[in-house]
Amino acid sequence: MDLNIFWFILMGVLLTGYAILDGFDLGVGIVHLFVKKDEERRILMNSIGPLWDGNEVWLVTFGGAMFAAFPHAYATAFSGFYLPFMLLLFALIFRAVSMEFRSKQEMRWWRRMWDVAFTTASTIGTFLFGVAVGNMMKGLPIGSDMEFQGTLLDLLGPYPLLIGVFAVSTFAMHGSIYLYLKTESDLQKRIHRWMWTTFGIFLVLYIFTTMATLISLPSAVTNFRDIPWAWVVVVLNVLAIANIPRAIYLGKPGYAFISSAATIAALTFLFGFALFPNMIVSSLDPSWNLTIYNAASSQKTLGIMRWMAIIGMPFVLSYTIAIYWIFRGKTKLGKFSY
């Protein structure tokens, strides 16, 4: 296979892994403040306690792989999104430390401070991921020198902001379903209601986002003409979304979780598919687009990196599976919890 395409797909796999796995961590953070009791808040944090760090590594590896495989895309996107990415970093920092610090002290103000930080950071982080994706979909003012020529305001258009809100609703739903799996009794009953609420919000925004994409970004569907089998993903996406309420209704939350994970995977796929073979679209002149060819590293590097991926990914998958297996079941507070 063409190495550039291989790496584009692998980046998609890493991004999908991140969105599914850290997606529920961020989702738990988004809904965190909706439980009031201290013990329940601890359960929420501990439900992702052993997992979030490994989940975030998917993002770190995505960044490293992008730097190595598509340095121009990495440089253009990261310098172009300067302030939003700085804010994203602060969000990720606070998300991490709020869990670590929260339950280390008894004071009420202390715990409340970190609770608020946790939810704020998770929400802003998710929102900014969405804004970044929206901007990539829409295209950026990229000059002939591959450099971003806009300002912060160019990044805050209505479409990217909509995708930001959509991302928050998606992860809130995903996180709620995850929490339903990890909790028991009274808390679980309340989370049952959240699943419905967050699904409702998600569904409305999904329809709205789909329409906005089709109307304002007709270029997003051009690839379907050349590769019609991709419609299968659209159909699967709709089926997965439809299966979420069905599974919740039938009392099969495991299937609901798989369906929301599949929904996220399908959305990530459609995002990559809309871009392909571009990495960053120039809104000024299509010939200035950063593609998987002109933004890439040499074939030699892509080849070396492919070996790294072939050797490394089985390890990554086995750690991931092992950790999820060890920490399976309902979250209980113990001596070693946050």
Partner: peptide, 14 residues
């Protein structure tokens, strides 16, 4: 990026 990126990616994966 062509040179420096791969150790960073290796750091993530390995």
């Amino acid at each position: 990026g062509d040179v420096f990126g791969s150790p960073l990616a290796a750091e993530g994966i390995f």
